[in-house]
Design a protein around this nucleic acid. Structure first.
Length: 200
DNA sequence: CCATAGATTGACT
DNA sequence: GTCAATCTATGGA
């Protein structure tokens, strides 16, 4: 049995992820992202995510111009993990949505440490809200990089569990994107202090 | 508080 | 060659 209150039978399965990124994104808020490695459990409650759409639908999406080596996982079976490297030094992670062959993903932007805060804080050189209030910070806290690209969140060492339901869900345009600003595909818990910087 | 520069590499045009 | 789904330090109000 999983220690830390994340038993296998409660883990989110394929069906939960198999829908559009825009539908999936808000339902990920309040869920726990759990990594089990070396007998250790790290858990983060998701408080901010962004949906990225498929080919030709969303100029800010890595999949906008079609399939490439980098964005391959955006077309994978739903429930997989898409990790990309950016700005020469950072990793960001996404949950794959839609159905196999159709691109769509949800960027994990920010969360609150639930378990393993000491280790994650040490990795980040920060504490409290600074542990995972940004997509690259969240990856650094969990130690996620390209080795984790393509993991199956329904079976592998990283998974997602229902944890709590946010009282409210707010919606805004996405952060750090130039095009596609009219698409309001950022979802966050407006009552959480653990969201990243701006909150328009 | 806010604004801005620099870091640093690979993917894509 | 250009620039990115970012973060941090620093400098000024």
């Amino acid at each position: 049995m999983g220690r830390g209150g994340f038993p296998a039978y409660r883990r989110l399965g394929r069906r939960f992820f198999a829908r559009s990124a825009e539908e999936l994104a808000p339902d990920l808020l309040g869920c726990a992202l759990v990594l089990r490695v070396g007998g250790l459990t790290l858990a983060i409650k998701l408080v901010e995510v962004e949906a990225y759409l498929g080919v030709g639908d969303d100029p800010a999406s890595h999949a906008f111009r079609g399939r490439t080596a980098r964005n391959e996982q955006m077309f994978a079976t739903p429930g997989h993990l898409y990790v990309y490297f950016t700005y020469g030094m950072h990793y960001c992670s996404n949950v794959v949505a839609e159905k196999k062959g159709v691109a769509g993903a949800v960027l994990l932007r920010a969360g609150e440490a639930l378990q393993g805060a000491e280790l994650m804080g040490a990795r980040r050189g920060r504490k409290g809200v600074e542990i995972a209030n940004g997509p690259a910070k969240l990856c650094q806290a969990l130690g996620l990089d390209l080795r984790h690209n393509g993991l199956d969140l329904t079976r592998d060492e990283l998974g997602i569990w229902p944890f709590e339901t946010p009282k409210r869900v707010a919606r805004s345009s996405r952060i750090g994107v130039r095009e596609g600003r009219q698409l309001r595909l950022r979802f966050f818990d407006p009552d959480s202090p653990f969201v990243s910087g701006k909150r328009t």
